[in-house]
Write a protein that binds this DNA or RNA. Structure first.
Lengths: 210, 210
DNA sequence: GCAATGGTGTAATGCCTATTACACTTTCGC
DNA sequence: GCGAAAGTGTAATAGGCATTACACCATTGC
């Protein structure tokens, strides 16, 4: 029925369409992008779009969910490394920052929020596949530390929300300010992680009061 | 030229149009709302819309900027009250939460972010009139505390970002999850403020490590 | 009361674009 | 090479809506 070659050809077309669609959605948003523009950029044909994705929403879902990645993998990776909790969290923070503040990530978040006004379910799926999974992984990490005898203030769930919140607030600022917010300053960023460690009772040394 | 009555009449129409537009934008978003729907709901006429607002964007700006309020006034009000810094911040946090997590606030934020894809300036103006002003007020407050000899860890700018960030991350979560995020739980909320106070060195008593 | 100013209602105009239909071409196993 | 399946290109359908044009009503100052 399906030879390998056929499958690959279709798959290549699919990938090209999704790539073109992502570029255009990022540049212009979902509503303002016409399917004909996508096809123009990727090559192929309108008929193929409908064959592969059913309708315009279909291609948006494909764009968003194709590359969506929660931070859970990053959490697991960082957790398996060596070091004190503070060191692990600093390392994890660096990865989170790179990922969450990537301009393409921000642009996708804008698109999801925009679409969410007319399609709640879509945004909720996105939320579950990103934030919820990441929170669960962080909560599990903090819980395992407690089980291992690490002393930290606050419950794992709250700490997970707070830690992720450090990045989420930057994502939001960036999404709405398009660069006006000054959060990219790396000194500030380090300070904020330090602040979290103190609040959680995980800092190796306390900041001296000034 | 303009009698009081004329002025009032036009003003009443303006208000009615803005109110109807806000309802519809909140329900359906900006793109999906037709000007004819707005007029249908508010009474009046399409011609009047163009006379008052110029075009469709004009009415969106009027909707967003009419009621926009930064948290700066709340900061000033809380700062002028009595109590320890911790008490003042807890009081302020309550106001922030009520304001920022109001469903209509969230809905407006969604609309602004959606529109920002095609009109950066618009979102940046919104950002400056809300977040920037609030941050400035918070920074000034923390700075004045330091000048008064209050001992706190971290620089006022960073503390302001962190404090506001506690709410911004909830706004973002709400904007994208439409209620799936569980952040409205008030116990968690209090914990988070307590966490901030500890990190800032402002807590009256430290949480016991668990 | 009455003209002028301002507000209203209706109905084009014009453009854009999702979706469909259909006839054509390419690919690929044989 | 051949024929079926898959993919393509083009153009028609159909509906939506911002914006404009214009003729009609209401208010108000006199």
């Amino acid at each position: 029925m399906f030879s390998a070659a056929e499958c690959c050809r279709l798959d290549r077309r699919r990938r090209a369409l999704i790539a073109a669609a992502r570029e255009l959605f990022v540049e212009q948003g979902y509503e303002k992008t016409a399917l004909s523009e996508i096809v123009e950029r990727s090559g192929g044909s309108l008929a193929t779009v409908y064959k592969l994705f059913g309708n315009k929403e279909g291609i948006l879902e494909a764009v968003v969910f194709e590359k969506v990645s929660s931070g859970a993998a990053m959490v697991d990776e960082a957790a398996s490394g060596r070091g004190t909790p503070a060191e692990i969290l600093r390392r994890l923070a660096g990865r989170f920052r790179t990922h969450f503040l990537d301009p393409e990530t921000i642009a996708l978040v804008r698109i999801v929020i925009a679409r969410s006004i007319n399609d709640k379910k879509f945004a909720q799926q996105f939320f579950e596949r990103t934030a919820t999974r990441t929170l669960d992984a962080l909560t599990a990490l903090f819980r395992s530390w407690k089980a291992d005898g690490v002393r930290m203030s606050g419950e794992p769930e709250i700490l997970a929300e707070l830690f992720l919140g450090l990045f989420v607030s930057d994502v939001h600022t960036e999404a709405i300010s398009h660069g006006l917010g000054s959060h990219s300053c790396s000194k500030r960023f380090d300070d904020r992680i330090g602040f979290f460690l103190i609040g959680a009772g995980l800092a190796e040394e306390q900041l001296s009061p000034s």
